[in-house]
Design a protein around this nucleic acid. Sequence first.
DNA 1: ACCGCCCTTCCGTTACATCA
DNA 2: CTGATGTAACGGAAGGGCGG
Length: 215
Amino acid sequence: MTTSMTNRVEDDLALISQLYPAGVYSQMVPQQAESSKPRRRRKKNKGGEAGGGGLKKRKLSTEQVNLLELNFGSEHKLESERKDRLASELGLDPRQVAVWFQNRRARWKNKKLEEEYSTLKKAHDAVIVEKCSLESEVLKLKEQLSEAEKDIQRLSERRVDSGSSNSPSSSLSMEAIDPPFLGGYGLEGYDDDVFYTQENNYIHGIEWMTMNLYM
DNA sequence: ACCGCCCTTCCGTTACATCA
DNA sequence: CTGATGTAACGGAAGGGCGG
């Protein structure tokens, strides 16, 4: 929190450094340092010259990187003993080895985060697909239910009609799937979901439908 | 318990190299 | 030449260990 806030301030200062010529800026810094945060600016290193004047190795050789990678693979942390040993093996400054490990840990962390993100995204996508499939199944079942309810309605209406007209269609099979006798009370006490049998036992509509469909 | 010093790690950034 | 990308290096904050 405080770090990022200071960094924002530093960003502003860095921006200032781009807006003003280097010489002007370098003279501005000490003045600002008195009132606010001092900002040390790294020197540009044109022509491979380090700040001190010596030649600066900008890129590590393949052999150096390979050995560093090998060491990083076995242990991400770098104790000072190992750092010194590695540095002398590679002909590098111990500080360079420390910086390399530091940057390598940062890269490793980023890569791990990317992998975790990718894994989570795959899981998320799979859940979304399953959700869609379940939703379409719910829709299908609702349609089936609606059709079944319409059938029940038709059948109960036909039952009422056949009471006066003795239609020839009231065959044996129709008897089997007609709604059970509702007694002398008409449809007034008729519940949408419950049918009463002649024995005054009741079963739910869906169960009744299922029973008749497979009888 | 407190303080100052040193060392290390992490984070954000900068400078530079390399490549398309 | 230029913008994107990778990486070595830096600066600062924070935390732990240790002696005074």
